[in-house]
Amino acid sequence: MTTSTRERIVSESLRLFADRGYAATSVAEIEAAAGLSPGAGGLYRHFRSKEEVLASAIREHIERTRRQISDVLHNATTYEDRPLEIRLRMTCQAGLAKMREEQDLIRILFRDLDQFPNLVAEMREGIVNPLYDGIATWLSQQPEFEGIDEDWPAVASVLGGAVVNYWLANESMYEPPTRIDEKRFVSSWARLGLGLVNLEHAPAP
């Protein structure tokens, strides 16, 4: 598939912002990375400013996230024939994969986005909250949890937060917390999810 000039500018700018920082990346460097003549103003034929390039990148990621969540929820019944623990592991793995997919944007968020509170709000409302809402919806739709009176948004906050924390610790400190590898983390995450079923059927004290 052919990549348009606009798409190349967005993709390369995001990579440069993540690697070097927003302020340290010049328009000419973005143009060169996107295959344009550096300093010739090619970027301005597609965007009014460097900030608009960043905003466009964030909005494209928001739209992609919305499509991904919609697809996951639409196909929520596809794997109902598999044990719940397997479905939980798959969900955890999908969460970690999403963090890896968004790693450049996350680096920019922590390094530079305090300069742009409006873009932080867009990321929060367009990517972060919908992901947690998606986890809550997915959990509530699992047959094993049917009839369980549970605060699914709060449970999603705990389980989703664990995925985010694990990935961030691995990313920022170059190894996972207490060297727990991903396979062990995913397995334990799934067992925590299974505990919701087990607690529901536990004898009253």
Score class of each variant (00 low, 15 high):
110 F>M: 09
111 R>N: 11
114 D>N: 14
120 V>I: 08
118 N>D: 15
126 G>Q: 04
111 R>P: 10
109 L>T: 15
137 T>L: 00
139 L>E: 01
108 I>G: 07
135 I>A: 02
135 I>S: 00
125 E>I: 10
108 I>H: 09
114 D>T: 14
137 T>V: 01
138 W>S: 06
132 Y>T: 08
116 F>V: 08
130 P>L: 08
132 Y>C: 03
140 S>M: 02
121 A>N: 09
136 A>W: 01
114 D>Y: 14
130 P>I: 03
140 S>H: 00
114 D>W: 14
120 V>H: 04
123 M>S: 07
122 E>F: 02
112 D>R: 11
121 A>L: 09
124 R>E: 12
126 G>E: 09
110 F>P: 12
115 Q>W: 09
114 D>L: 14
139 L>I: 02
136 A>T: 01
124 R>K: 15
109 L>K: 10
126 G>I: 05
133 D>Y: 04
117 P>H: 04
128 V>H: 07
132 Y>R: 13
129 N>P: 15
121 A>V: 07
119 L>F: 01
124 R>H: 12
139 L>M: 03
120 V>F: 06
109 L>I: 12
137 T>I: 03
118 N>A: 15
128 V>T: 13
123 M>G: 11
116 F>L: 01
117 P>G: 06
131 L>D: 04
128 V>M: 06
112 D>S: 14
118 N>E: 13
131 L>I: 09
